[in-house]
Design a protein around this nucleic acid. Structure first.
Lengths: 219, 219
DNA sequence: TCCGGCCGATATGTATACATATCATGCGGT
DNA sequence: ACCGCATGATATGTATACATATCGGCCGGA
């Protein structure tokens, strides 16, 4: 009686979505998943409902769940919202980060200058993590996590094309950090919104692949 | 096979929370709810899990769900996040509202000036609705709805003490609308954040009631 | 009288059985 | 040959039965 089954299945399905094993439109049949995970349909149903509330699955034919199909307009709106939330976090961080946290942010950026390009994704995550912690708003952090979860299928389609943007992104990080260290909340907000917008444009630029109007075939 | 049971129970439980019939800390026993609604435990469990993901219920003793107990610090963080989201919506509305929508907003405020004080809650909702639509960001609107849902238990504790604030609130609405009509996004954001902060202070001021450290007894 | 451990009660977690709606297939009619 | 309907298969929605962990009370001993 551990409640662990549903959580494990939920996490496993998210990992598959992130890895591209469950592409948009893939069917999520309860019986198949139950036999695959070696459990009954009950915990599988619970995991699927959680996935649907996360915005990662939706109802398809026969009321079955399918992986949500991200259309470009919705993704643009999603990234716009991410930019607003991240911008609010950056503005709060500009006001609230302690001197220790500011020194840590500066050190993080200094390390980033000398880092090779292939370590950029981890560095990017560390930068945004530092801001989330410095903003001191668990609610906004949680909202942001929920929205970024919904960008997973989109990111899985174009597998981390961020590489070429590392130089540009470092410059944007520097601009955000400068505004925060200067305690200029509005400048930090604008710089962060530009950063998110730039990342979205870089991602969507590579999306010339057919948007898959055909929902069929398995995972 | 309508899937309606879980959704109905979910909505009914939310209504009870809003009405104060389910105060913070109240136990949500699956069997009792099942017999009360005339269904089996299965749809009840589904409704409770949705309630938990809404942030309205949490795990208590025996892993049973209980109505989430809102502590003042968490509520302050929640309203702060609401202020940031509403502020972002107001800023977007300042940029994006069409001329027709701007005229409608002005007319709405003009009607509000002549309205009696007891119609203030509906007028307040209409004002914020107009901004949500004018901002053109369904994602932010949905995020906001989720956060405001979590304020329900708090609002239920101090049953709509907003009445005395109607004059002050009308003035704040006017300031927000003026900024939007002038296309001054940052002024609109600041005015909206002040409006939300004022509403929170008015609500929390009346919270001198004991915070109920005793979790016992039923609904 | 108080403390500790055993034990029953009860509620949740999981599995399975049944009801029902939807989709596909095949037959018959035109 | 094609369209329409009936029928069967299959998947989800719901109910019920079983497993298990936790909480409370009772009993025994110091």
């Amino acid at each position: 009686m551990s409640e662990g089954s549903a959580a494990k299945i939920h996490a496993a399905l998210i990992a598959r979505i992130a890895g591209g094993a469950l592409p948009p439109g893939a069917a999520l049949a309860e019986t198949a998943l139950a036999s695959e995970f070696g459990v009954s349909r009950t915990p599988v149903r619970e995991a699927l409902q959680r996935l649907a509330q996360d915005g990662l699955a939706e109802r398809g034919a026969r009321r079955a769940f399918v992986i949500r199909r991200p259309d470009p307009a919705a993704m643009a709106g999603l990234f716009e919202a991410v930019g607003e939330i991240e911008g609010a976090i950056a503005a709060l961080a500009a006001h609230r980060m302690s001197e220790v946290e500011r020194a840590g942010l500066e050190a993080l950026l200094a390390r980033g200058e000398t880092l090779p390009g292939e370590d950029y994704p981890a560095h990017n995550l560390a930068f945004h993590d530092a801001l989330r912690r410095g903003a001191g708003s668990p609610v906004l952090a949680e909202v942001l996590a929920g929205l970024e979860l919904q960008t997973l299928p989109w990111r899985a389609l174009n597998f981390s094309r961020d590489a070429g943007r590392s130089a540009q992104s470092r410059a944007e990080h520097r601009a955000i950090a400068d505004a925060i260290l200067a305690r200029d909340a509005e400048a930090a907000r604008r710089a962060m919104q530009a950063h998110v917008a730039g990342a979205f444009l870089a991602l969507s630029h590579s999306n010339r692949n057919p948007p898959q109007t055909d929902p069929s075939h398995d995972a």
